[in-house]
Design a binder for these strands. Structure first.
Length: 285
DNA sequence: AGGAGGCCCTGTCGGC
DNA sequence: TGCCGACAGGGCCTCC
């Protein structure tokens, strides 16, 4: 599942391929991904536009578009959902299975492939407007985290995953940063002492930053024809040797030894999502 | 209004 | 071996 680091790495990869290109046409194969707009609305909205930039906030990605002879730009917002992939290919190449939408760029095209159709491509900006501070941006300070965790009685893990407060953390990285900061996922968010808030802030920044740097170094298979090798959502390109599976500290490791203390990692459930944690390292206050 | 829970969707995996 | 049900979980919607 792509979270902030994966989306940022994808953004960096796409930017040089897309900026300056003109959109010749827009084709929707899975109307669900453009909901609630119609394929026709999207086509009318973007055809003939040129791409001025590629942006990101949280797990949302967007293309800055401008109509011909216009200086004003607007967003074509894209969310990868659970299984979305976005990549550039030659226009002559066959479209892969589960292609949801295609942006024609002359000799090339931008393909959005999404087997589970949880992703979205849209011109509306409501989803973007409702996002909280991006977890990698300079505005994400300790104070912002403290404010996001204040007042509510929600468990800290549930709160961290609420994109309206902090944007970018999904189930995987939330488990990872809570373990790194030695915070119980069940701790009431507002009860977290300042020291732990600081540790959590540090863990979030370090973990996401490190993962982005790693992703930028690797040769990745954005098209997703190859198998993910478990290291990164996109998987390695075939030209690169598979990476070791040493990736997550606790996520998906139920029953395995905690990398810090050796205790068995436990899986629990919060808001219908799996939570992986070490009951020894991550005790409630 | 904030929070909880259901729904969407299909590849993968475990069990029989 | 093969089939089938359970599971995974982003965001979004509805209800309380």
């Amino acid at each position: 599942m792509p979270e902030l680091p994966e989306v940022e790495v994808l953004r960096c990869n796409l930017e040089p391929l897309l900026v300056g290109k003109r959109i010749s046409d827009f084709q929707v194969l899975k109307p669900r991904v453009v909901r609630p707009e119609s394929p026709q609305q999207l086509e009318n909205g973007v055809a003939g536009c040129s791409i001025k930039g590629v942006g990101r906030k949280g797990k949302f990605l967007w293309l800055d578009l401008a109509k011909a002879r216009s200086r004003t730009t607007f967003h074509l917002t894209i969310h990868l959902g659970m299984t979305g992939r976005l990549f550039v290919q030659d226009s002559g190449d066959p479209l892969p299975g589960h292609t949801a939408a295609v942006l024609g760029l002359g000799r090339k095209r931008l393909v959005f492939r999404d087997p589970r159709s949880f992703g979205r491509v849209t011109l509306e900006t409501d989803s973007l407007d409702q996002l909280g501070v991006d977890a990698l941006s300079d505005e994400f300070l300790v104070e912002r985290l403290r404010d996001a965790l204040a007042i509510t009685g929600q468990a800290v893990k549930v709160r961290l995953m609420d994109q309206r407060h902090i944007a970018g953390l999904g189930n995987i990285y939330v488990c990872e940063v809570l373990h790194l900061a030695r915070v119980s996922p069940f701790e009431a968010a507002s009860k977290l002492p300042l020291g732990k808030v600081k540790a959590l802030h540090q863990a979030i920044r370090n973990t996401l930053q490190k993962q982005v740097e790693l992703g930028l170094k690797l040769k990745l298979d954005f098209a997703g024809e190859g198998k993910s090798d478990g290291l990164f959502y996109f998987g390695s390109a075939s030209t690169q040797a598979p990476q070791s599976r040493e990736r997550f500290r606790v996520y998906g490791r139920e029953g395995e030894a905690c990398p810090t203390c050796g205790s068995k990692i436990v899986r629990a459930e919060q808001s219908k999502r799996g939570t992986f944690f070490c009951p020894q390292c991550q005790q409630r206050e």
